[in-house]
Write a protein that binds this DNA or RNA. Structure first.
Length: 550
RNA sequence: GCGGCUAUAGUUCAGUGGCAGAACGCCGCUCUGUGGCAGCGGAUGUCGUGGGUUCGAAACCCACUAGCCGCCCCA
């Protein structure tokens, strides 16, 4: 059997790397706590509709990158019967009566439909669905006799329904239904037109977390508290993209949202500035070097369509001169043209209308207030009129933090992104609840920290306890228990090791070794060797924790 | 989804048609209560998978799969 591996775009995080992940998350939690954020944990999957409405049907994320499946699927017996009856009428064939005599019994077994007919020229048409039990197989074999076939029904462990029942027969399955699988033999599968499966719900692994947070905000009527809600989350997100440096199909985001009714001040520029100031503090505390905050305003829900219309108009006469990508973008998503890095098109792009000129008075004032507050707090930023974000819900303030080349991210230099979403709650059927949020790409953050760190700091244990002979194992474990209770990090060896091996292992893991031999246990004086200096002393049992704690 | 590069020991890689290799790591010994340094010895492989060419394939050809990098897009 081929070795099983983590599926494409997913990966295992192992020690010691997970130590850094924990440090990052602990730092983020600490910063969030200081700014008054509480943790929210939303489900890893949601109704597909949430993302379609929240993130936007036409975005790349929703249109091609989501993991979506039909949940609670069940066979629609009634639709199938009706469709089958029509086939019968159309083909003027009679249903084999004997098979139908068993129908009630089959149904009790969970078989939802078995239909057969005799025709000397054509093989039987049969469709059935059941949970296979030995009793079910027996009944089906009786049905087989009624159908006058020579083939046994067989149980196959790898399918839930549509069991194989022999070569030379035709198995009719509803069109679009999961194809049955067969362990042996040739079976002709004929699609029976029509959708006979009712889907209870279409579900999707979350491609981002903002929509889920806002859904929870609405569902739990958090607006009714009248208070500003400050929520953060840490968790995996899922997008079916081609994996690349700093991009995975299961990736981690650390994010936060500030949301509330307008009366709570959620719309205020103070909130935007506070979030940005918090992020600058977080990145500094984590030790991210050279980060750059790009800031823009994409205007209100009414500014944006006006600007897009103006952009389309301005692009119309010049787009033929632009690169292929930009010609396509000009049609599908004119805002994206602004993102283009194609050197030949820069002149044209710079001449395009600026979003700043299409902001209404409120949006412009709002943006000014955000900038003023950032200036006051000493948070450096660069206004980038061309910064547009891909998700439909963004309004007004949008931002992105990037790190310089050589920070381990390749061309994926965006560490985190976010913005304001004043209309999202209403788009999801909730009350008016303006908000602002961001998501940090944790995988990218880790890559950056690893690339920027001078060298990985190997944290060594305080002590390695080396029993001399298996007879000392218990005594060594007891000593380890005492030292661990005193808060020390300790590993215990094995008395079966030769002392030389104990030293080798100890030197890799710990800063000191404590030898537990007969002499030591008897005298209560333990031999301690410090690997750094090579110094070796004897220490009383009661003083060990103090000596090793330093 | 598109394009480029890659796939050989635990790891990093060498090996352009003729015995499966190096370094590091691992295990053992020198050294039965002393690590690092040194010397000596040892183990470790479906050469990514499947097919083809050939007397002979890790190498050449084809397909597939996976990884990396870039595009698109995004965190």
């Amino acid at each position: 059997m081929a070795t099983l591996k983590a599926v494409r775009g997913t990966r295992d995080l192992l020690p010691p790397e997970t130590e850094l992940w924990n440090r990052v998350e602990a730092t983020a939690r600490g910063v969030f706590a200081r700014y008054g954020f509480g943790e929210i944990r939303t489900p890893m999957f949601e109704a597909t509709e949430l993302f379609a409405r929240g993130v936007g049907e036409e975005t790349d994320i929703v249109s091609k990158e989501m993991y979506t499946w039909e949940d609670g699927e069940r066979f629609d017996d009634k639709a199938f019967s009706e469709a089958w009856t029509n086939v019968q009428l159309n083909e003027k064939k009679s249903v084999l009566e004997e098979a139908h005599l068993l129908t009630d019994k089959l149904r009790k077994l969970g078989v939802q439909r078995i239909i057969g007919r005799r025709n000397p020229e054509k093989p039987e048409f049969v469709c059935f669905r059941f949970k296979a039990t030995s009793e079910a197989i027996e009944t089906l074999n009786k049905a087989k006799l009624a159908l006058q076939t020579d083939h046994d029904f067989k149980y196959s462990a790898d399918a839930d329904y549509f069991r194989r029942f022999g070569p030379g027969l035709r198995l009719v399955v509803p069109a679009g239904s999961p194809k049955p699988r067969f362990d042996t033999g040739e079976v002709e599968i004929e699609e029976f037109p029509g959708n006979f499966f009712k889907s209870a719900q279409s579900l999707t692994l979350r491609p981002e977390n903002t929509a889920g947070v806002v859904r929870a905000y609405i569902e739990h009527k958090m607006a009714d508290t009248g208070m500003l809600q400050k929520l953060f989350y840490v968790g995996p997100q899922f997008r079916r993209e081609r994996p690349q440096r700093g991009r995975y199909r299961q990736f981690w985001q650390i994010g936060a949202e500030v949301i509330g009714p307008a009366s709570s001040g959620s719309e205020s520029a103070v909130r935007d500035a506070e979030v940005l100031e918090m992020l600058s503090a977080l990145l500094d505390e984590l030790g991210v070097k050279g980060w750059r905050l790009a800031l823009n305003s994409v205007g209100s829900a009414t500014d944006r369509p006006r600007y897009i219309a103006a952009l389309r108009e301005a692009l119309e006469p010049v787009k033929a001169q632009m690169c292929e990508d930009n010609q396509r973008r000009a049609e599908t998503n004119p805002l994206r043209v602004l993102d283009s890095k194609d050197p030949n098109d820069q002149e044209i792009i710079n001449a395009l209308p600026k979003i700043a000129d299409y902001l209404d008075e409120d949006s412009r004032e709002h943006f000014e207030q955000v900038k003023d507050a950032l200036d006051a707090c000493g948070v450096p930023y660069v206004v980038e009129p061309r910064l547009v974000r891909g998700l439909d819900y963004y309004t007004r303030t949008t931002f992105e933090f990037t790190v310089p080349d050589g920070s381990g991210l390749g061309t994926q230099n965006a560490l985190l992104g976010g913005g304001r979403y004043d209309g999202l709650s209403e788009m999801l059927g909730g009350p008016k609840a303006p908000g602002i949020g961001f998501a940090i790409g944790e995988d990218r953050l880790i890559l950056t920290l690893q690339a920027q760190a001078k060298e990985a700091v190997v944290t060594k244990l305080d002590a390695f306890i080396a029993p001399m002979g298996v007879g000392q194992n218990a005594a060594a474990l007891l000593l380890a228990k005492e030292l661990r209770a005193a808060g020390l990090t300790v590993e215990v060896g094995d008395g079966a090791f030769r002392l030389k091996k104990s030293f080798e292992v100890a030197d890799k893991l710990a800063r000191r070794i404590v030898i537990v031999g007969e002499d030591e246990v008897a005298s209560g004086m333990f031999t301690v060797k410090f690997f750094g200096t090579g110094e070796q002393t004897k220490v009383l049992r009661g003083e060990l924790a103090g000596v090793l704690g330093g």
